[in-house]
Nucleic acid binder design. Structure first.
Lengths: 349, 349
DNA sequence: AGTTAAAATGTGCTCGTACACGCAAAATAT
DNA sequence: ATATTTTGCGTGTACGAGCACATTTTAACT
C-alpha cells in the first residue's frame, strides 16, 4: 500500500519549497550543497518517481519520428508494417507522438538515400528505417548522429556501432531452425538446396547468414546423410521469374527439399504437385501466396519474421524512451516462429 | 498536422464557457437543449477527443484489480505469470493501477473458492483468475456480476456467458498442431498414445479438447497408418509418480510416440534414451525440466502456452479499458507456438 | 557601517480535465 | 406583487510537474 510521493510531499518532508526540490531533480543549480543532499536523501528514502502523467501534461511537446519504408506496391512482406504504425499512432497520439512516413522504391538504391535524407531533414527526434541498402543506410545513420537523431533499424542488420537500436531475428539461428525442420522431414539420405531468390540482391549478407546456419546444423547432426546445394536465382533477361523457376525445377528434379531464404517460396510451390516426388519446401514469411500453398500442403513450414511486431516494438521502444525515459536495449531478437498449416491463422493480423 | 482540440477550444468556438461544454460531455444536465446541440455539433466537427493524460491527472482514482493464482510452490508452469504482474505494475503503477495478489492451493478445491471470495470481498474493479475449478469459478464469477466487478479468465476455458474476458489457446487446435508434428515425425505406420498426466484431474475438459483435436487430425490425414491409444495417469497410492511412469513405459514399450497433454512430458523423458526405439515425445510448456530434455533431444517438440503473455494481455486489456475506455474483445486466442531445440531460447522470459 | 551583488529559496502560473460552487435570469409559488 | 425555487450558465480550484519570476538570505565590497 505504498503511496506515490509527489514533489510537494518531498518538499514538505525536507522543509523546503517545491521549487527547490525541482531544482535538485533537474540539477539546475542555485541550491546549497547541504539542502541538495537532504532532498536527495528524502527522495531516495521515499522512492520518489516523477509522475509521468503530470510531466507529459506540462511539457506539451510533440515528438516527431520519421519512418523510412519500401513503398506500398512493392513486396507484400512489408504490408503488416503499416498496420503497426497506425496502431502506435492510435495508442500514443495523445502523448504527442507524431509519425511521419517516407517511402522509397526498393528497386532504386538512389531513392533510398534521397528519401532517407529528406526524412531526417525535418529534424525528428528519431528515425526508423529498414536498411535494405546497408551502405546508404550507414550514410544516413551518420547524418543522424551529427544532428542528434536516434536511429532505429529493423529487419536487416547493419553495423551496430552506427545505430542506436536494432530489432529483428537472429538469421543464423533461423537457418538452423529451417535445417532442424528439414531434418525430420527428410529420409535417411537427401539432396537439399538452399535457394536465394530475389529480384534484386540487396541483402546478400542477410541470406548468407541463413545459409551458414543451415549448413552448420547438418555439420553437427550427421546421423542423416545430406548433400546441400546452393543456388542463387534472379530474374533473367528475356524470361519472367516464373519461367526462370520452372527452368530451375526441371534442371534440379533430383532435389528432395528446397530451403527458400526469402519470402518467395510460393514461386516454387506454384505448378503444384508435379508428382509424389515433389520437393519438400520450407520458406519465410506469412505472405498471402505462401499461406495458400501452406494450406494446400505444397509448403511444409514457414518461418515467421513478424514485420509488424518488429515495427511495433521498435516504435514503442523509442516512444517510451522519449515519454517516460525508459531506456531501451540496443538490440532485440524476436522469436523464430515455426508455422505450419495448423497454426498459421493465429499469426495473421 | 491536425491540432488536438481542447474543451477550452470548443467552448470558445461555440461561445460558451468550458463548464457548459463539460456538462454536455458528461451529460450532467443543467444545459439547454439548444446549446447542447450546438456544443455536440462543434465537438463532432473538430473531432474533439478528451485528453486522456489530463483526464487521468485530474481523476486521481485508484483502480484495484484482484488476481487469483495458484500458490508459488505449485506447478512451475505458473511462474512466468508473476513476472507479467510485476511488469504491469511497473508500466501502469503511475496510472493508479493497483494489483492485489491472492493465492490458492491447487490441490485443495475449497481453497480456490474461499481465497477467491476473499479476493473480491475488497470490491476491486476487476478480478482475474485461472479457473482451474470450473464449478467454483462460476460461483465466484456470478458474485462478481452482482457487485459489478469485471471478470477476466485465462488459460482454462469456462462458460463464456459467465465471464467478461477470456484469453488462452484453442485447445482443440493445439491438439491438431501436436498431431501435425507427429505426422512428420513418424514412419508410415505408428502406434501413438495420448497421455493425460496430472496429479489431480481438475481440468478434464482441458485435456479432452486436445485429445479431440489430435484424433481429428489423423481422421483427416489418413495417408499414414496410425493407431491412437488413450491413457490417463495419476499418482497411485504407495507409488511415486516416477514409479508410475516407469511402470507405464514398461507396459507400453511398443509405442512409437507419446503426446503428453500437460506440462509433465519431462517425466516420460526422464531415464532418457533406453534404446533407439524410445518413443517420440511431444508435450506442452517451457518449464525448466522440459527445456532440458528438449535440448537433449529426448523431447522433439513443445507447444508453448505462454502463461506470461496470457496474464500480461488480460491485465493490460482491463487496464486500458478502465484508464482509456478502450473496449476489449471478449475472447483472445493466442498463437500456438511450436518450439524445438533450435528456437526455444527466444521464448523464455 | 552601508551598499550591492550573488546565492539560495519561495511563489505562482500553466498544461487539459473534472467538479464544486456561485450567480443571474426565468419559472413557479405565495 | 414579492418571495422562492428552478434552470442555465460562468468561475475557480485542484491534480503533479516545470519553469519564470519574485523574494529573502548571505557574502563581498567600499
Amino acid at each position: 500500500m505504498k503511496k506515490n510521493y509527489t514533489i510537494k510531499d518531498i518538499a514538505r518532508i525536507v522543509g523546503v519549497s517545491k521549487g527547490t526540490v525541482d531544482r535538485v531533480i533537474h540539477q539546475r543549480g542555485r541550491v546549497s550543497q547541504e539542502t541538495a543532499e537532504k532532498v536527495k536523501a528524502v527522495m531516495a528514502q521515499f522512492e520518489y518517481r516523477p509522475n509521468p502523467i503530470a510531466k507529459r501534461l506540462k511539457k506539451n511537446t510533440i515528438y516527431n519520428i520519421s519512418i523510412l519504408l519500401p513503398q506500398k506496391n512493392s513486396d507484400p512482406y512489408w504490408l503488416p508494417c503499416f498496420a503497426a504504425i497506425e496502431q502506435v499512432e492510435r495508442e500514443y497520439g495523445h502523448f504527442g507522438i507524431k509519425l511521419n512516413r517516407y517511402y522509397f522504391d526498393p528497386e532504386v538504391t538512389a531513392s533510398f538515400l534521397s528519401v532517407g535524407l529528406e526524412a531526417i531533414a525535418s529534424k525528428p527526434v528519431a528515425f526508423l528505417m529498414v536498411p535494405l541498402f546497408f551502405r546508404e543506410a550507414e550514410i544516413i545513420a551518420e547524418k543522424c548522429k551529427e544532428t542528434n537523431i536516434k536511429v532505429a533499424t529493423f529487419n536487416n542488420y547493419v553495423n551496430q556501432s552506427k545505430v542506436d537500436f536494432f530489432i529483428g531475428q537472429d538469421l543464423y539461428q533461423s537457418g538452423r531452425v529451417a535445417a532442424s525442420l528439414f531434418y525430420i522431414l527428410i529420409k535417411e539420405k537427401a539432396n537439399l538446396a538452399i535457394l536465394h531468390i530475389d529480384e534484386s540482391f540487396q541483402n546478400a549478407s542477410h541470406m548468407q547468414e541463413k545459409e551458414r546456419g543451415f549448413i552448420d546444423y547438418f555439420e553437427i547432426n550427421k546421423s542423416k546423410e545430406v548433400k546441400i546445394h546452393i543456388h542463387h536465382l534472379k530474374k533473367e533477361d528475356g524470361f519472367s521469374i516464373e519461367e526462370t523457376i520452372t527452368n530451375f525445377k526441371r534442371k534440379n528434379a533430383y532435389l528432395d527439399g528446397i530451403f527458400v531464404t526469402t519470402s518467395k517460396a510460393y514461386l516454387l510451390a506454384n505448378g503444384g504437385r508435379v508428382s509424389s516426388t515433389k520437393p519438400i519446401l520450407v520458406g519465410y514469411d506469412l505472405v498471402e501466396k505462401n499461406i495458400a500453398h501452406l494450406k494446400e500442403g505444397n509448403i511444409s513450414f514457414l518461418i515467421h519474421q513478424d514485420p509488424k511486431k518488429q515495427v511495433y516494438l521498435s516504435l514503442t521502444s523509442l516512444v517510451e524512451y522519449f515519454l517516460f525515459d525508459n531506456p531501451f536495449r540496443k538490440q532485440l531478437l524476436l522469436p523464430i516462429d515455426i508455422i505450419n498449416a495448423e497454426n498459421y491463422s493465429y499469426y495473421l493480423a
